[in-house]
Amino acid sequence: MIQAQSLTKRHGDKTAVDAIDFTVQPGTVTGLLGPNGAGKSTIMRMIVGLDRPTAGSVTVNGKHYREHRAPLCEVGVLLDAKAVHTGRSARNHLLALAATHGIPAARVDEVIELTGLGSVARKRVGGFSLGMGQRLGIAAALLGDPSVLILDEPVNGLDPEGVQWVRQLMRRLAAEGRTVLLSSHMMSEMALTADHLIMLGRGKVIANAPVSEIIGMAGTHRVRVRTPQAAQLAALLAQPDVTVTTDEPDLLKVSGISAGDIGEHAAGAGIVLHELTGVSASLEEAYLALTQDEVEYRASGSAQLQEAGR
């Protein structure tokens, strides 16, 4: 279990993490989600003592990380692929980490097998692809058989096979009763892997709830309507609280009215429908809706881009 209390990190005048509180429960995969600069990585670094909190504290299994007798056996962490000396072989890297805790070489070979690095374990890490580097980072995180796993962008650089492997691994680790905290920019990945989300914006927690609830927060359900008489139907549906958008000539996206009512209207006017589907908001939409005011660098630059796009 990870518990943060009034956890704060300031760099000069800039507040990266602003007095946040959260608890990450065992047995679940918790996703840390937020735009760049929201403080995700800083939080992860503070949990394992790489960054010192300006105020507040964060504990793992009831203690500060540095106070554990066997830190690697409490927390496994993948911060980014670049935490390995490029001149050393993967196996020697893991052996050096294992040696600090007296973890035997047999366990090193075990995590090498588990992460599929067997064929490259004796090669220097400098020649590794991004995906191989991620696998090595995950191997290092699993070394101490920890009860808490913290993974920053774990699927970054992995091929589809690797992505699926990480996803299953996360699920299995959580099912074994471990605490799994991961961050990702890939919303679809979060929707598939995480049970619970902590959404961050400008260093603050803006939502902390199960994934399904977060999607619910976005609210608006929409209806996809495919019809050869799109213009005619759009005119028919024009009401104050109904919005109709269109990307393709024969496709309408309608919100503010139910699928059933659209069907009634169409039938009444003799309009042929090829498709009529209710679409619930995606996690991506929920995320955008919730972080709309929180995006840090929404300065004049992007505003001009939006203008130019019109």
Binding site: P26, R107, G131, L142, D145
Partner: peptide, 26 residues
């Protein structure tokens, strides 16, 4: 790299929390 066998156990001691810590590593 081939996808590793995903059904292999992650834990080498007990899957319970802090399994390795209780194995005397530190």
């Amino acid at each position: 790299t081939t996808a590793p066998e995903t059904t292999a156990p992650v834990a080498h001691t007990s899957p319970a929390a802090g399994g390795a810590a209780s194995a005397g590593y530190g």
